[in-house]
């Protein structure tokens, strides 16, 4: 069952094409990571999903309803945290939280107090005195106080300290365990790795890859650290070997997953003393997509 379905979504601002026919799907009960560098189109996509921007072409559906036409109906069942939380300087954090919860419909005071405590927020302060992290906490408390079926979170942790990031991750996991769906946009990759079931990678307005983390890993390389009795020769001749580096007799390099068998057979000839392998991080995966493609170097 898909909760959120985006097909061939295109958005142009004048001559500039921000989104070029993207496809996305968030299934019920999953955490979907939406990653990409700044300016790739993450926030534009999310704003279309919220009915704040109107798509030029294509379809965006949440709970089977049109994101633009049925925005209000949809919003009764979702919770949203924007990437840049701007609040009213003359209202207090507590007032803003209550207002947000009320505007969405329904109220859950117990949860509110609990979350304020967990996120360590002082709700009696005016928003003008809050730091970026504190403004984000206000939005997060408001979002998690509401009982939503789908959470749309746009880089929600960019201003939080590591401790608060953990609280956030717990909140996400709790929601997931109670069967809620979450769309999490981020460029903090460790977070996405920790939380997400599936990811979609967007770049320059196009989805370049979608799948579970393990599905995507077959595309990428494994990092190997090898020490052998004899000097390994002819390594660079083999297919699928990258970034060879030698330091104090220890050889490190990357191997394309599909070439692993051949490589292992080759190096075992030289008498392996030590072998460490690390799975690719999402960061490697991410970087790999930018290598060799047009306009590479888009590390954000």
């Amino acid at each position: 069952m898909s909760v959120l379905q985006v097909s061939e979504l295109t958005k142009r601002f004048g001559k500039f094409t921000a989104l070029n026919g993207i496809n996305l799907e968030v299934r019920e009960g999953e955490v979907f990571g939406f990653i990409g560098p700044n300016g790739a189109g993450k926030s534009t996509t999310i704003r279309i999903l919220l009915g704040i921007l109107k798509a030029t072409a294509g379809e965006a559906k949440i709970f089977g309803k049109d994101a633009w036409a049925d925005a209000v109906e949809i919003h009764k069942r979702i919770s949203y945290v924007p990437g840049d939380v701007n609040l009213w300087p003359n209202l207090t954090g507590g007032e803003v939280i209550d207002l947000f919860v009320k505007l969405r419909g329904g109220n859950n005071t117990n949860r509110r107090e609990e979350l304020i405590k967990r996120f360590d927020l002082d709700p009696s302060k005016k928003c003008r005195t809050y730091s970026k992290g504190n403004r984000q906490k206000v939005a997060l408390v408001a979002a998690f106080s509401s009982d939503a079926d789908l959470y749309i979170l746009d880089e929600p942790t960019s201003g939080l300290d590591p401790l608060m990031e953990q609280v956030f991750q717990q909140c996400v996991m709790e929601q997931k365990q109670s069967g809620k769906s979450i769309l999490l946009s981020s460029h903090i990759l460790s977070e996405v790795e920790k939380l997400c079931d599936r990811v979609g990678i967007i770049r320059q307005g196009k989805i370049i890859e979608t799948g579970t983390l393990s599905e995507l890993r077959h595309l990428t390389r494994i990092n190997l650290l090898v020490k052998t009795k004899e000097q390994i020769t002819d390594l660079h001749v083999l297919k699928g070997i990258h970034e060879i580096d030698e330091r104090e007799g220890v050889l490190s390099f990357q191997v394309d997953t599909e070439e692993l068998d051949v490589v292992m057979k080759h190096i075992s000839q030289f008498g392996v003393v030590k072998l460490e392998s690390t799975p690719p991080t999402l960061e490697d995966l991410f970087m790999r997509h930018y290598e060799g493609k047009a306009g590479a170097g888009g590390r954000s």
Binding site: V72, E73, P82, N86, F100, R104
Partner: peptide, 14 residues
């Protein structure tokens, strides 16, 4: 312009 409307429209407000 100050980016605060999306908080409102992102909730159940037409």
């Amino acid at each position: 312009k100050k980016g605060r409307i999306e908080h409102i429209l992102g909730r159940a407000v037409s």
